[in-house]
């Protein structure tokens, strides 16, 4: 009756046991996070960071297409926050647009969060104050993606007559930074934050037609597929999921000592580490059971 080996039993353990183990190793470090030294990836994170470091102050424009959805928030939101922080520290102007309506809330939240961080510090005499219209403009959303992606190459005022808050884009007294921005030629780089292949769409349409540099903040699922674009130089560096975001947060903290904002991705890395380890151990255990069982069966003939 009971002639199943321990290996066989272990291989057929109830899936809910596995779920429970995963949940525990994930939840414990969320409640008790620990600090970890994070290594910087040179070809992806550092390359992008250095590219933005080289932009001349005051007159450079970083155009962010923030196309993150709530379900990608843990990976992509910290990237958006980091890019905005970096640009504000370096006095680079930020122009933000969304291609999906579901991204609007998160994009606005990130802009408000970072500008509040800066303004709070400025009120204590550290750093500078951020002013809407001078340091950044939020364009809002325009469907479908291809329309703004191609349209911004021609004339931004045709695609977005007004900003997200209803200010006329051509009202230079309210939005002084728009005076010098007409299309992609006046921007230094497009940063596409997305969980799909939108960075490639930017490469295929915006870069191919108008020659602007493109970088990506992408979810880890699609990272491997972007390496050909990284190698060919079509992407100027990129951020790889939560790890890339954590690396970028670390670089900003190192370069700008006054930066004291929350590092969401870095905080998530401890739960990442424990869960990764658990999965690796499970695969090893699963294989050990598999081979032991096979040996047992071959011995029995």
């Amino acid at each position: 009756m009971n002639d199943r080996t321990i290996w066989e039993k272990m291989m057929q353990v109830d899936r809910r046991v596995i779920y429970l183990i995963v949940a525990i190793v994930m939840i414990v470090p969320i409640i008790f996070p620990f600090d970890l030294p994070i290594k910087i990836s040179k070809r992806t994170t550092l390359k992008l960071f250095n590219a933005i470091e080289k932009f001349p102050e005051q007159r450079s424009v970083f155009f962010i297409s923030a196309d993150l959805n709530p379900q990608d928030q843990p990976e992509l939101y910290p990237m958006l926050v980091s890019w905005i922080r970096h640009c504000f520290h370096r006095k680079i102007k930020v122009l933000v647009m969304c291609l999906y309506p579901t991204s609007l809330g998160l994009a606005e939240q990130a802009l408000n969060q970072v500008s509040t961080e800066f303004n709070n510090r400025a009120s204590q005499g550290i750093g500078r104050r951020i002013v809407y219209g001078e340091d950044y403009v939020f364009l809002g959303y325009k469907p479908p993606p291809i329309v703004p992606i191609l349209g911004l190459g021609e004339n931004i005022f045709d695609v977005f007559p007004r900003d997200f808050y209803g200010n006329e884009l051509k009202d230079y007294s309210t939005l002084p930074m728009m005076e010098n921005i007409k299309n992609y030629r006046d921007m230094d780089m497009i940063g596409s934050i997305a969980a799909n292949t939108l960075p490639v769409t930017y490469i295929a349409y915006a870069q191919a037609r108008y020659g602007i540099a493109v970088t990506g903040g992408v979810t880890a699922v699609s990272v491997a597929d972007f390496y050909p674009y990284l190698d060919s130089g079509q992407l100027t560096g990129m951020l790889e999921g939560m790890k890339g975001a954590a690396e970028y947060e670390g670089l900003i903290r190192e370069t700008f000592p006054e930066e004291d904002g929350r590092r969401l991705a870095t905080e998530g890395m401890s739960a990442q580490s424990t869960t990764h380890l658990a999965i690796i151990l499970m695969v090893v255990l699963g294989n050990v059971c598999f081979f032991m069982q096979r040996r047992h069966e071959s011995r029995r003939g």
Binding site: I18, Y19, V22, A23, Q71, A278, M282, L285, G286, F290
Partner: peptide, 17 residues
Amino acid sequence: FAMLAFYMCSAAYRAFR
């Protein structure tokens, strides 16, 4: 989407041979 993490762990244990 988050449930996929659990399914993947279970699949890794059972089928990644």
